[in-house]
């Protein structure tokens, strides 16, 4: 549990704290967060040597906008990973949320109905996942993989195998690309809202405490009288909603929902969570870390794209980087059952 909170200490940079304060802050930081933050700085500096564009505010804001979709998916993925489970149904939950919400929203109020529809679709999918995992005790990895396949089948049926004709509703376009604050796309604000929600949920509610407890030792949580099954179910529902919401936002950014739009989100989301210092076996991690992990992943992808690396090289480098960062600190410690 010790690593549950230190990420928040990242926010106010220590500045004039004196050496003692700086050292105590360093001690409170997770090594993963330090490594990930150092990697972000290294990518930005290395990139700026290659192309001065890397340090321009416009570029950075644009990267944050791209990161907000991944960050929202990662919020859900993290909740499930904290429990010691995993949600492999992300790709088609995201796509199903996007397709159904865009297709069913209608045009009243600029398609405002799309948002609750997406959240409900995600929650319903999450409920199925949660029931299978919490009540049937099927390994989450397998069950969510199966749900992913069923969703893919359902969406293929729904769209007839081709891209759905309806394009993104106006409200969602505004949410993803519009600007309430000058210079800052709304998607970043949505992400910030999700972030605040996650941090409060994990740190300040009994629900959050129970999530960490289940991740540390499910038996102990059950014996302490915690509502284990309910919390697992709810977590999967929140995770599904997060994926579906991200999918909906993505339609506003890309213009419409399309087949396979979620395929590129599964591994990056899990990687962002793990690189942000969350233990893949559960029980340890903070959303602040996941934010840093998300930014790291997005910057890495962006740099590989800017360097005009062919797809093959991009996949390999991407895999190798995630792999080596996992080796740096994603290892299961011996003695941790």
């Amino acid at each position: 549990m010790s690593g549950a909170g230190p990420g928040l200490a990242m926010r106010p940079p220590g500045g004039a704290g004196g050496a003692g304060a700086a050292r105590s802050m360093l001690r409170r930081l997770d090594p993963p967060l330090l490594v990930a933050s150092a990697c972000i700085v290294a990518i930005l500096l290395g990139g700026s040597l290659y192309n001065s564009l890397f340090l321009s505010p416009h570029y950075l804001v644009q990267q944050l906008q791209v990161a907000s979709f991944l960050g929202i998916v990662a919020a859900g993925a993290m909740l499930v990973i904290l429990l010691g489970h995993i949600d492999l149904s992300v790709p088609w939950t995201l796509t199903a949320g996007a397709m159904l919400a865009t297709g069913l929203a209608g045009s009243s109020l600029g398609g405002l109905a799309a948002i609750p529809i997406a959240v409900a679709v995600g929650a319903a999918i999450g409920l199925v996942n949660g029931l299978g995992v919490a009540f049937l005790r099927i390994p989450s990895m397998i069950f969510t993989l199966g749900v992913n396949a069923v969703l893919q089948g359902l969406m293929v049926l729904y769209t007839g195998g081709s891209a759905p004709p309806s394009s993104a509703v106006p409200v969602v376009r505004w949410l993803a690309g519009g600007r309430v604050l000058p210079g800052i796309p709304n998607a970043i604000l949505v992400w910030a809202l999700v972030g605040v929600f996650m941090i409060l949920l994990l740190r300040a509610t009994p629900f959050g405490r129970t999530v960490y407890a289940i991740g540390n030792r499910e038996r102990a949580a059950y014996l302490s009288g915690m509502p284990v099954k309910r919390v697992v179910c709810l977590s999967f529902m929140l995770a599904g909603s997060a994926s579906a919401l991200a999918g909906l936002l993505l339609t506003g950014y890309a213009g419409k929902a399309f087949q396979g739009m979620g395929d590129t989100y599964l591994l990056p989301a899990i990687a962002a969570v793990v690189l942000g210092g969350t233990s893949i076996v559960g029980g340890r991690g903070s959303y602040a870390g996941t934010i840093i992990g998300t930014i790291l992943i997005v910057l890495l992808q962006s740099m590989l794209a800017v360097m005009q690396m062919p797809d093959a090289g991009r996949q390999i480098i991407y895999g190798v980087v995630i792999f080596s960062m996992l080796l740096l600190y994603g290892r299961s410690r011996s003695g941790q059952a």
Partner: peptide, 19 residues
């Protein structure tokens, strides 16, 4: 590397696909 099999093989599958 003592990585969790699920996450390790998910990462290596990206590499294999790249190759």
């Amino acid at each position: 590397g003592r990585l969790q099999p699920i996450i390790a093989t998910l990462a290596t599958s990206t590499m294999f696909y790249g190759v």
